[in-house]
C-alpha cells in the first residue's frame, strides 16, 4: 500500500464532506418531520390515515434503499406528468433525489423509533399529568416528549449512523460526495485500496464524532444514571 498516495487523497476527499454532510442533515430533517407525522398517524389509529402510514413504513423498511434511490432518480423522469410539473427542476437534480430517497427512507425508521420511545413511557407518568390538569399539548411537551426522547435516543443515534453510511449510495447517481470522489480517485490513480481506505477512515471519524456527541447528550438526559455518580444536592 502506498501511504503517501493515501495521504494525498485525504484533502481531496475532505472536499466532498460538505456534499455528504448536507445530504445527511437534510435527509435526517425530512426523516424527523415526516417520521413524527407518521408516528402520530399510526398511534392515533385514525382510519385510512393510519393504514396508509402503516403501508408507508412497511414499504420503505422492506425495500432496499438503493432501489428506492434508483426509482426516484431514474424512474420518475420517465413520466411526463413529473417532467412537466413544478417539481421537475428539483427532481432532475441528483443531490435532491438523494436527499429525498434517504429522507423518505429515514422517516419510516424514525417513526418506529419515536413510537418505541413513546411506548416506553410509563402509563403512570401520563396519568399523573392528566390528574394535575395538564392539557394534551402540555402532556406532550412537559412529560411525554422529554421522557420519550430519552428512551428513543440510543436507537436514533444508530439511525443517524446508518444514514451517514447510506449517503455513500448517492455516489451511484453521479454525486461527488466522499464516496463519489473516492471512486474517481481510484479510477484516476489505479489505486482502489488507498482511495477507499482513506474514504473509510473519514467515515469512521465522522461516525465516532456522532457516537460521542450522542452519548454526551444521553448522559445529560440520563436521570436514572445519576444515582451511580452520587450527585450532591445544591
Amino acid at each position: 500500500m502506498n501511504w503517501d498516495l493515501l495521504l494525498s487523497f485525504v484533502p481531496q476527499l475532505v472536499a466532498g464532506l460538505p456534499v455528504t454532510l448536507s445530504i445527511l442533515v437534510c435527509s435526517l430533517a425530512i426523516g424527523l418531520v415526516l417520521g413524527a407525522l407518521l408516528c402520530w398517524a399510526r398511534m392515533r389509529r385514525a382510519p385510512v390515515i393510519a393504514q396508509a402510514a402503516d403501508f408507508y413504513v412497511l414499504f420503505f423498511r422492506g425495500t432496499p434503499l438503493l432501489v428506492q434511490l434508483f426509482a426516484i432518480y431514474y424512474g420518475l423522469g420517465q413520466f411526463e406528468v413529473v417532467r412537466d410539473s413544478f417539481a421537475w427542476p428539483l427532481l432532475r437534480e441528483a443531490w435532491f433525489c438523494a436527499v429525498l430517497a434517504l429522507g423518505l427512507n429515514s422517516a419510516a425508521f424514525t417513526s418506529e423509533i419515536m413510537r418505541g420511545g413513546i411506548i416506553g413511557v410509563e402509563r403512570g407518568q401520563i396519568e399523573a399529568a392528566e390528574a394535575y390538569g395538564f392539557s394534551r399539548l402540555q402532556i406532550a411537551r412537559l412529560v411525554l416528549g422529554p421522557q420519550a426522547v430519552r428512551f428513543a435516543l440510543p436507537s436514533y443515534s444508530n439511525e443517524t449512523i446508518l444514514m451517514l453510511k447510506g449517503t455513500a449510495l448517492a455516489s451511484t447517481i453521479s454525486i461527488m460526495d466522499l464516496t463519489g470522489i473516492a471512486r474517481k480517485l481510484s479510477a484516476l490513480h489505479f489505486a482502489p485500496f488507498e482511495s477507499f481506505i482513506a474514504a473509510g477512515g473519514i467515515y469512521l471519524v465522522l461516525a465516532m464524532v456522532l457516537t460521542l456527541s450522542y452519548s454526551a447528550i444521553e448522559k445529560r438526559l440520563a436521570w436514572e444514571r445519576e444515582r451511580k455518580t452520587n450527585v450532591s444536592p445544591v
Partner: peptide, 9 residues
C-alpha cells in the same frame, strides 16, 4: 397515587 407517579425526569 399508590405508586407515587412523580415525574421521573
Amino acid at each position: 397515587f399508590q405508586s407515587f407517579n412523580l415525574w421521573r425526569h
